[in-house]
Write a protein that binds this DNA or RNA. Structure first.
Lengths: 216, 216, 216, 216
DNA sequence: TATGAATGAGATTTCATTCAT
DNA sequence: TATGAATGAAATCTCATTCAT
């Protein structure tokens, strides 16, 4: 097959890469296996992406772009914090169901160490962190959200919960862990998970320390 | 048993292994490097642990035992949920500071896929999940904690936040992510992190949905 | 014959080939690089020359033809040995300056081993060797040149010196070697080199062993 | 065979390397082939020499050391130029017969281009060039050698002839070229070659330009 | 028993060559 | 016919594992 690689073939190459890197990590992934899975030659793989690192980066970019698109859909319309949180939770649960490979790759990347990982963190988390912190600060200013916790920390806890819920949707370890805690798979429990997480967050974001003291 | 590896030598082997596996992952880790770091021959390493997977398992066990000991200290005395949460947060923050390698290794393991990861999740998370769920259910029964969320889910969210806070303490990616969200390193902010997380959890675990509706 | 490679394109292909083969040797040369340098497709290169060996051969032929032309100019007019030697030395020094790539290619070829190299030696050196030996034998018969050395050997030594002087002009190793012996580059010293070599050869070709014995 | 590589095995590795590099050049040589020829594993080859370049360098060093030893034997005793030249010619002819691979390797190296080749020229030719030029200058001072040619140039021509005679002894191309000029192999003609070259050099080194003019 | 050099399968990467366009 | 992307064999090099000492 000496035709130029079709768009689909290139897609399938990236998908195969995402899958393999997510499964075995950067070091463990096998370029030959990836090429074979996508039914293209190793030569073509190298022609397009230079080397293993370059190809890994391309797979990662593909994943992050998809995530960005998903978040962009959700955050394009203004909304209050509750509505906002609901939409993000739904969107990320769906993303984790439909693009399991992307999330797995992200999980693997985040677990890898070194300067490279640090640099990527800056690239990947910068936008989200500012978006969340901004929305939360606005909510606090409007009196919708508690004011006794730093908006940055609130954003941090919020994103932590979202990440873990995504990982639970598609990484083997985190899926099993979810089963142990909640019984059943994240898909089966998707609605319940969404609702309970929302309730959890609403309380956490709403009530101040002083109100607890009063109650006690 | 003429000349056997001393206890210290075996310890230093495991420490070197934890470090290397945490840094480079299972596939990327180099057995020679590990042996050299511990000043042990590769032959001895293989004699004691069979092969790379077996040694990885031993490193993991060592990490998990340390974590178990830390949690056991904290949970040995009965206490109400708030006190309990406070103690666990403190203990895990300290653990992540003092045993960075163990936590990193756990992070890497959790990111790895396959049957093996699933099996390990069962082994590792089983105890904790039952412990948390039990304590939370007791709190609900005693009227200390909200009753409108499944205790299993509450436990799940609780552990999620704890894991992420630990990762933030010692994994390169998560450390940098923390810096982006909160500015500064987890060590510098340890006290603040502890307090804010506690406040967050207290609200999340205390107030019911109906109370929010009332307030609005 | 709709669109054929123009004469210039073929020339530039051969020039690029000579350069690349001279620089990296037959095995080290890269067909893609050659085609790119000449702004020709690899496909066309293969269409015209079959394979790498075939193209190498074509580059070599081009080099040898240029050398033949240069020698033909010089040897077309009859002359005595001294005049003859002077012309050849001048011509080859100029050739090595103006066609460095050809000489380098020849040097590389001569260093390569195998049946092929032997066969090429026959092709390349046959004419020159007969030409030199003939001229020298004539000089001996005329009493211009010493008679106590086999003309074949005299021709051999003569050609050896010419080859080395050419290599000194354009091959990195031999250039540097010249600098170590004589200080300066062959271009800077071209006149001196020519004169000294001529003096050297004149004595070597003139005086017989017996004359040395007499002197002593 | 898990014993440490014996001295002989290491020798045979270097010999195999010299042979392969001489035959195919640095780029064309095959590390697997070399290891197989020496009946050792590729792993061991790489353990000892790091990479292909490092091993090439080791092979080259071995060759140069052998050459140095040979020249040292010859130049250890003081002698006049004629005796000196006779000894060197004999020694190098023998060297080229007995250590064909070393000379071939040297020939290949000298034909390779680039910065590396230049650097090696400095290393390799530095000693010889100074030795020759010194001896020749002494001969000129003593009135044994002609004074109308720069000793450096005389040394250069002298070494050129020696190199070519060596190449004629063991490089396929140069051997065939010798046959074309002189008929027969350099071994068959070794004595004659030695004597004729000596006569050639004696005249070249003895008689001044003015003497030729007188004769004419 | 501990050692660590040797092994060699297997990984990444290159590049001569082909052939659909 | 010329093109140059695709091919895949083959090269270099690594490293988990073995086993003679």
């Amino acid at each position: 097959m000496l035709k130029k690689l079709s768009e689909e073939q290139l897609e399938s190459l990236l998908e195969a890469g995402v899958e393999e890197f997510a499964r075995r990590g950067l070091a463990g992934a096998n370029m030959r296996t990836i090429a074979d899975r996508a039914c293209i030659s190793v030569g073509a793989l190298y022609k397009y992406y230079g080397d293993k690192d370059g190809f890994f980066r391309a797979c990662l970019d593909r994943s992050l772009e998809a995530l960005d698109r998903t978040l962009a859909e959700v955050t394009s319309e203004e909304a209050g914090f509750r509505e906002y949180a609901r939409r993000i939770i739904q969107a990320l649960l769906r993303f984790s169901r439909e693009h399991a490979g992307y999330v797995r790759l992200y999980c693997v990347l985040a677990a890898s160490g070194g300067e490279e990982a640090r640099r990527l963190a800056g690239e990947i988390e910068g936008v989200t962190s500012r978006l969340y912190a901004g929305t939360i600060a606005a909510g606090q200013a409007a009196g919708d959200l508690r004011r006794d916790i730093d908006p940055a920390m609130l954003a941090f806890f919020f994103d932590n919960l979202l990440m873990m819920v995504q990982f639970a949707g598609c990484c083997d370890y985190y899926r099993e862990r979810f089963r142990l805690y909640c019984g059943g798979t994240p898909e089966e429990q998707e609605d319940r998970l969404e609702q309970e997480l929302l309730k959890f967050l609403e309380s956490a974001f709403t009530f101040e320390q002083s109100e607890i003291v009063h109650r006690t």
